[in-house]
Amino acid sequence: MEYTTLPNTQIKISKICLGTMNWGEQNTEAEGFEQMDYALDAGVNFFDTAELYPIPKNPKTQGATETYMGNWFKKTGNRDKIVLASKVAGPPEFNPHQIREGGFSRNAMEDALHQSLTRLQTDYIDLYQLHWPDRPSNYFGKRGYRHEPDHQWEDNIRETLESLQHFIDQGKIRHIGLSNEVPWSVMRFLEESKYQGLPRVVTVQNPYNLLNRTYEIGLAEISIRENVALFPYSPLAFGRLTDKFINGQDTSRARITLYPEMKRYNKVNALKATQCYYDLAKENNMSLATLSLAFIHQQNFVCSTIIGATQMDQLKENIESIAVQLDASVLDQIHKIHEAIPNPAP
């Protein structure tokens, strides 16, 4: 395993992070335990979850993923071996069963944090992230920003940071991050931190993969110059960037098969680009998943790549990708494909 540090901290993290959003939907608690055992043995010390998980969202299963993790911590005593990341859900546009009212108000976040700590059976969370903005913006598959003048939103970024500072002072969280965010907001958070002496964002958890490199347009430079690293999710595009959809493997358990609403990776250009990347991988004697993950690992604005798997063989392959280094010729071919078919699945 390779390691780095969480930006602006002394916390050592593996450059692969175990994602958990399938647990409670596609994976049982026992399977989650098996994944955590294997990942830790392989050197992965960074786990990511959210109060909303599992996905797809369901009021009957909401919180199950954190509960599984908490039960594993209790059973194994491994909490002190793990750097733990979780997220507070945003307002109800993408939270239809409305876990609570209040967005990112102090009371709402206090309730969210209390519930997460209880489920996780821990006293603190190392990285606490805002799962998505509490204002209309271009996230979750929207290419461009469209202003909604009728939507009343008052800039509450300072107040949000003040609440997070309160939780840090209590020892309940250590550091903070954003998720599904855009350049304007990241810089606003950094501005308030700088001039008001408030907690500084250390990561941005956004989608990033060979079919969606939109992070590079405005956020990659911020990551490098401001030392706020990308913590990428969906590195395999819900499994689209794996061999199974091309070489005839069973795809009945694949997320794209089970949940057709995740349609951005089924678009014509996404399929066309995927075939090009698959051909490139085979020319270089590797799987499409390995090529896709190795590309992300080598980006200088990425701190740790979130991998998620439903089956153990997938998890093993994903973790082993950390040992693969793509040479300049392969990277050049990747960029040529991207130039020909840019961001087909934002």
Rank of each mutant, 00 (worst) to 15 (best):
N8M: 11
T9C: 13
C17V: 02
E29T: 03
A30N: 14
G32Q: 01
Y38K: 13
D48G: 07
T49N: 11
I55Q: 05
N58F: 09
E66G: 07
R79I: 00
A89Q: 02
R100H: 12
S105T: 11
N107P: 09
E110Y: 00
L113G: 02
T122N: 15
S137M: 14
F140T: 00
R143I: 07
K172E: 09
H175M: 06
G177N: 05
L178A: 14
V182E: 11
W184A: 08
E192V: 05
K194F: 04
Y195F: 15
Y195K: 10
P199E: 12
R200I: 02
R213L: 06
R213S: 06
G218D: 12
E226Y: 14
P235I: 05
L241N: 07
D243R: 02
N247G: 09
D250L: 07
S252M: 08
S252I: 10
I256G: 10
I256N: 01
Y265Q: 06
K282N: 07
N284V: 11
I296W: 01
Q299E: 10
F301E: 00
F301D: 01
V302T: 04
T305M: 01
T310W: 05
M312K: 14
M312I: 13
E317H: 07
N318C: 04
D327I: 12
V330Y: 05
L331V: 05
D332V: 10
A340Q: 13
I341C: 02
